[in-house]
Structure formats: C-alpha cells, structure tokens
Design a protein around this nucleic acid. Structure first.
Length: 496
RNA sequence: GAGCCGUUAGCUCAGUAGGUAGAGCACCUGCCUUUUAAGCAGGGGGUCGGUGGUUCGAUCCCACCACGGCUCACCA
C-alpha cells in the first residue's frame, strides 16, 4: 500500500501544470457549469439519428471527467464521462485557437465542461465538436490503467472512489444495490407496511445473540450500545398498534470479520401482526422473486458457479430432519445430552464441558447441513433454546416456530412467530441471563421494559430479518460482503 | 484469535536457482486535421511493504513487524 502523500514524477508534473495554469490566469478548479445534456443520454438516444437531425439538436453542453486523450496532430479526440455514460469529444486547432494548446495539455482524470455541436465521425461514433470548454477540476493524481482497471483488492476497498472511477461493474453493482433497497420499500409499502426508525444507540442491546459495541454519552454519563438488532423496539411498536412496520438500517456486531461478516451491516426487519412464520415464508418467496425478476429479469441466477432456481415454492427442511439425514441416525430435541456430545465430537466440533445440547445441534447444523444448502431452502423448527424471542411450535413445544432461509449457502433471512406471552418471555430472558452468568457473552440481555410492553398485550405477530448485504451478494454474484459495501471495515492504513 | 498465501514502476503483471530488475498501459520529447487499447520515432521513471539477521554481496535465504486475501473459530 502506498502512503497517501507519495510524490512521484507523474504527480509532480501535474502540480507543475496546475501552477502554469494559474500563472496564465486559468482557474483549474472552476465553479458551476450549466449542463444541457448527459453523455449517456446523447449516445443512447441518438445512435440512429441522421446528420441533419444531429444539427437540429444545436449546441450541447456536457460536463465530466476526461478518461483518455488521443492526440492527432492539429486535432485531438477525448473521451468524456459523466454519471450517465461517455461521449467522444473532438477538438481542432483551427476551431479553438490558443485554447487548443490547453486542451491537448489535459490529463486523464481532469474534469471539464464542454460546449459544441454533435456530428458523427467516419467510423460512425457520435461526437461533440468542441467550440468552447472550461476547466472544472484538475486531477493531480494519475488514474489506474484504462485497460486492466484497478484489481488490487486492498486499494479497491480503501480507495473506493478509484474503484468506482475505473471499474464499471462496481458502479453497476452499487446501482443494483440502491435499486434493490428501493424495490424492497415499494414492495412493503404496497402491502401496508410502515417504515419506521428506532434507536441505534440502546441502553440494553437486544434482539439478537451477539456482542455489542459500547459507547458513552457524556451528559447522561451513560454507557450505550450500538444496536445488534432493532427487533425489541419494532415489537414495542406492534404493541402500540402499528400492525405492520419495517426498518432498513445498520446493525452493529462486535465480532469477527469475514467474507460474510462486516461489523456494520444492513438489515431489513419487518413485523406483521396476526400472521405467523408460515405467512412470512410465502411473503419471502414473493419478495425475493420480485427482486430477482425486477433486477435480473429472471428467476434463475448463477452464484459463484452454482445455478440457482428461485421458482417457488421453496423446499422446507426441518432442522432435525436435516441433521438426521446427514448424521444417518435418528435425532430429536429429546436425544440425550451424552449422545449429542458424542455426535458433535465425531463431527470435529469443539465440545465444552457443560455446553448445552442446543449449542451442539447448532454447531452440527452449521458444519454439516449449511454447506449443502444451494437451492432456496427454508430451514424450519429450530430448538427453542436457540430462539429465546420466538413462539413455541404449536405441535412440539421443544421447537420454535422459526425459519432461516438459505440460498447458495448464504443465510439470507431469519424469521419466526413472535413470542407474545410476557410471562414466558420473562422466563426465557432469565434463562439467557443465566447463560450470560456462565460466560456466554452473546446471550440475550434481560429487557424489562420490553417484557412490560408485552404485558400490555401484543397481538400474534410474525417477524423477519433479511440481510441486505447478502441479498445483494446473491443477486450481484459476488463472493465477499466487502464487494457490496461501499466502505468495508479495514485496519487503518499505515504510513510507511 | 490460529494456519496458509501475497506485497516488485502511477496501474496490470513478469523476473532474479543471491551479483541492486523488465514488459504492456500510463508519463515525457518530436511527427501526425476523423482517432478510438490511434500510430510512428526517441526518452525518463523503482529505497522490489518495513526492520533486523546470514553473506564479500540480499528484491531473492532467515526472523520479526505492518497491511491484505483465503480457510478455520465466532456470528447474520
């Protein structure tokens, strides 16, 4: 990694050019420029126009970054790019006079504003014959190479602006992400959901089993935690009569970083009163298919070499059924603890002395089942101990009415019928508190106000969280969460 | 946190079985009035991630450090 203040010949030359411009009275960092046309619209809309029609358009003004210059004696071609696309510029010494010298002295990366007439070159490319132009911003650093782009992952993540300038697929991806979130909102709005915002800084971090970040409010002299989930606040809103709510925003978890984990990540959580987890499976199928259809134009997608068909209905796989299958033996919540320990040890899972069976089931599931979940699969009926906020299954109280959605090995969603019995919720919290006592830093905290809210009555409700970053990874066919987050978390750059 | 791999010119990459390094693009000079990875001729540019060690000599071997990637652990 190069230090940010390095000086090399290329940069020094550009500084010299900058000084020379100023000495001539040219402002290398111009101000506003009235744009009449966008490059991408011009080249897009006028591909078939005849020469006379181009003339009728009259003078056009475009602004953007110069990407390449092709000097050709007393003429010069340049490629200009703005937010919408690129267009070619054509400058002639006999048209621009003294200005021509300045134009040919442009560097790749400079921002300019240009006014001129449209014409078509011999090879048919729509081009602006430059009549007048102005500096909008001088680039003092050279851009990465036009042909190979920027490959170095570290530089791409640290200097995302460069990645965006030179790698078109990256620009595309973040537009896809933006459209996905917009479509998500429209989908939920159309079904009567209300978008809300709940605290990111919480005195009691709740709603997920995860270690929080701590911060401190000076005036209140109070430790606050960045939220690990909005869940408990959203359910309070359901108590308050907001029957359908959702929130799309960041969660923060103070845990490891990997290709699937960033310390801050974006989550959609939504709650629907009078529904259960079965309703949400159908809603989830509709939602994901809608997004795929709109964004990819298809219900089939390729993720890292795997073909995935999203056509519903999706497979529903019982948590213990899946384990029984891979373990080749009958297992259930009633399997004796010693047997569970034996199975976990055989699978190479670290077995702590007093690890509860549920934790071992979870370990076995993650190690043996998750890697096989390619096609869209709702894993249903988790051990109740792993789901302290969800309702017991009406047919088997050892299981939760819960599902997790896996697609192409990615865990994309987690949902359950919400526990709305305040007494049982309190008991479950106390059980978690006991595990916290025993050193489980990820066990849930006891939130008494949340229990109090349930005591006022929460209608039967189903709730779901969808990891937006992972959904974007899936639809964008990207291997790392860092590829779908504009500024992923990295260690600070060191000055060498 | 552990293991493995990587770090060479602005960018993308070669390379040196230890004798201080090359290419393409970019850059500089000259020529060129419809080019488009423009072309032609010439030229400049590197503390080979950092610090130590071994050696007559280290970019190359060794150790430590930094940053990154992958896998594992933890989680979503």
């Amino acid at each position: 990694m190069n230090a940010p203040h390095d000086e090399n010949e290329l940069i020094q030359r550009r500084h010299a050019k900058l000084a020379a411009l100023r000495a001539r009275g040219v402002d290398p960092f111009g101000s506003r420029f009235p744009v009449t046309h966008w490059a991408g619209r011009l080249t897009g809309l006028l591909t078939t126009a005849r020469e006379e029609e181009l003339k009728e358009v009259g003078p056009v003004s475009v602004a953007g970054r110069v990407l390449t210059l092709r000097h050709h004696g007393k003429t010069c071609f340049a490629t200009l790019r703005d937010y919408t696309g690129t267009i070619q510029l054509y400058a002639r010494a006999d048209q621009l006079g003294e200005e021509y010298g300045l134009f040919t002295d442009l560097d790749a990366g400079d921002f300019i504003g240009v006014t001129g007439e449209l014409f078509r070159t011999r090879t048919g490319e729509l081009t602006i014959a430059v009549k007048a132009w102005t500096f909008l911003a001088k680039a003092l650093r050279p851009l990465p190479e036009k042909w190979h782009g920027l490959r170095d992952l570290e530089t791409r993540y640290r200097q995302r602006y460069l990645d965006l300038v030179v790698n078109p697929e990256v620009r595309q991806l973040f537009r896809l992400r933006s459209r996905l979130v917009k479509e998500l909102r429209e989908f939920l709005d159309a079904r009567g959901f209300l978008e809300v915002e709940t605290p990111m800084m919480q005195p009691i971090p709740g709603g997920a089993a995860a270690r929080p970040f701590v911060t401190h409010h000076n005036t209140l002299d109070l430790d606050l935690y960045l939220r690990v989930a909005p869940e408990l606040y959203l359910k309070r809103l359901v108590v308050g009569g907001l029957d359908r709510v959702y929130e799309i925003n960041r969660n923060f978890r103070n845990e490891g970083i990997s290709t699937q984990h960033n310390p801050e990540f974006t989550m959609l959580e939504f709650y629907q009163a009078y529904a259960d987890y079965g309703d949400l499976m159908e809603l989830t199928e509709a939602l994901v298919c809608h997004l795929a259809q709109i964004l990819l134009g298809s219900l089939t997608l390729a993720y890292q070499g795997e073909q995935v068909d999203l056509t519903p209905p999706w497979r529903r796989l019982g948590f213990f059924d899946a384990l029984a299958e891979v373990l080749q033996t009958d297992v259930s919540p009633r399997t004796e603890a010693s047997r569970v320990r034996q199975l976990a040890a055989a699978a190479g899972i670290s077995v702590e002395q007093d690890a509860p069976s549920a934790k071992l089931w979870k370990g076995l599931f993650e190690k043996l089942v998750e890697p096989t979940l390619i096609r869209p699969t709702f894993v249903v009926e988790f051990p109740i101990e792993l789901s302290p906020l969800s309702k017991r299954n009406r047919d088997n109280p050892a299981l939760a009415e819960r599902f997790e959605l896996f697609v192409a090995r990615l865990e994309v969603a987690n949902a359950y019928t919400e526990l709305n019995d305040p007494e049982e919720q309190l008991a479950r919290f106390k059980q978690q508190a006991a595990e916290r006592e025993r050193g489980d830093e990820e066990a849930h905290w006891l939130d008494r106000d949340f229990v109090r809210s349930l005591e006022y009555g929460m209608p039967p409700t189903a709730g779901e969280g969808i990891g937006i970053d992972r959904l974007v990874m899936l639809l964008g066919d990207l291997p790392s969460i860092r590829d779908v987050i504009l500024f992923p978390q990295l260690r600070p750059e060191t000055e060498s």
